[in-house]
Each structure stands twice: as C-alpha cells, then as structure tokens.
Nucleic acid binder design. Structure first.
Lengths: 136, 136
DNA sequence: CGGAATCCAGTTAGATACTG
DNA sequence: CAGTATCTAACTGGATTCCG
C-alpha cells in the first residue's frame, strides 16, 4: 500500500490528466483513503450510531478485533482527512467522541455501488478461485 | 492488508449477517480484491485497450512504475478471481495476452461512484490535511 | 478513559539475476 | 518475451507498557 500522501498526489495527477473518453479511474484512492484494515469498518459503525457519534471505547467494542493502537491511528487519519470530527471533553476521566462528517458519510455512500457488486459476484469469484486452485 | 482469502470470507459473513436497515458495507472487499498497489491500474489499462486485451509487455509499459514481478503477481491474482483471462501463445518468443472479463469490467464500473466522489472531494480533503498538519 | 511509546512479527514490494 | 527465484528494505499491525 502506498503511503497516503504520495498516493493522493498521484491520484490528483491522474485526475487532471484525463481528457479521454473514459476518464482514468483514480480508484487507488480507495486504497489510500479507505483501503487499510479498519477504516471502512469505523466509518460504517459511526454511520449506524445515533447522531453518527460514538465514544472511543464504544467504537472499540463495535469494531470487532481492533486494537487500541490501530483504532487511534485509524481515527487520526480519518480526522486528518475531514471524514471524522473528534470531540474532546476534558473531564475526569476524559471522554472523547468521534462524529462522522458529511463528507465521511458521502465516502461511505460512494462505496455502495461497489458494495452491491461484491455481494452479487462473491459467489462467482469463489468458484473461480476453487477452479484455479484445483488446477494447480 | 488482510490476506485475500480470510477477508473475502469475512465479507461473506458480513453479507449474510445483514438484516438491518442499513446493510453492512463489506467494502473491505475493496481492499482485498482491488486494494493493493497495482490491481486497479491494471484493470483500468485493460479497459482502455482495444478488445480489452494487452500483452504482458504492453501492460508493463502502460502501468507506469510496476516491476515485472509485481505485474506478474497482480495478473495471477486477477486471473484467479476471474477478472482477467490469460491467453498463452506458445510461439518463440512466447506471446501472452491478458483480457479483461465481463466481471472484471463490472468491478471497474462498480468503482465509478467512488471515483466521482474522489474527484469531487479531493480538493477539500487536501485542505483538511493542510489544516491538520499545520496545527501540529 | 483515551492514548502515546516502544518493540516485534508478518507481509509486501523493489532490485537483481537467471531461464524456457 | 514472459516469466521464476532470491534477497532485502519498508511498511503494517499486534502486544505490551506507561501516562495525564
């Protein structure tokens, strides 16, 4: 996986280059923005929550196997990209809530098409895999 | 990045779990199927080619910085998933062509929504990043 | 509670050399 | 030409510890 910075830049270049019939698909942006192990799951859990908000600990419970470290890193990235807002309440013990932004919700919706495609083709793909592996 | 097999399985489970208002987005399938460094680029180049076919060497030229090794690995995976077909001509020197399948083209089209989203939001994202990094 | 720091293992990708 | 094999560097993510 390309580091986020380099890849987004590459995507930007791709996007500006495009005077073709089929505009280049900078969908490596998928990888770089959402393509790591936890990002999409975090966005999705937030989208299901009331007011699209969850505390750190609640998020950690819902995202299945995520470690504290990875959840923190994932949220930092999301915040940096403007897909999530961090609300910090300096109480004791401290409370932190993460909120899905408009743009974050949009990212999730933008994946719906692919979501359906996966659902519709998963079975076929698995058959291809079996066939390929058996032939080996 | 989760190994392809495990993740696809996880996606499958997610998909079958879903009796909710918002169906779970198994879009980690993005990562596992297309989320590595070269896969989407390869699909895209094939989609632009005549008859959606290119020789190995042509593909290598078009995909920018890809190494021979990585192109081979990427194509093997695509073939295994049924997104690409490999045509081997036992001449000397040998000739090999890779062809995008119907399903492979579908995968690319399924990413269009996300593609547009990236294009529309790239600038905003970059501004968020600058702001975040400057605040640091 | 929420997170930063450190260390470590596994995976991925690049470079290089060799081959049918 | 289209690979395969090998070695190595880099990155990712997990486990653990400590802190305000």
């Amino acid at each position: 996986m390309i580091p986020l910075d380099k890849q987004l830049h590459a995507d930007a270049l791709q996007g500006s280059e495009g005077n073709r019939l089929f505009r280049p698909i900078p969908a490596n942006g998928v990888c770089t923005l959402l393509g790591d192990k936890w990002t999409v799951q975090v966005l999705w859990r937030l989208s299901l929550a009331e007011e699209h908000r969850l505390r750190f600990s609640a998020l950690k419970k819902e995202v299945d196997g995520v470690t504290q470290r990875m959840l923190t890193l994932t949220l930092r990235n999301l915040e940096r990209n403007g897909l999530v807002v961090r609300h910090y309440f300096p109480e004791v013990p401290p409370r932190v809530e993460y909120e899905l932004t408009e743009m974050g919700g949009g990212a999730l919706r933008a994946l719906e098409g692919f979501n359906f495609w996966v659902r519709d083709n998963l079975h076929t793909i698995q058959e291809y895999r079996r066939a390929y592996d058996d032939a080996k």
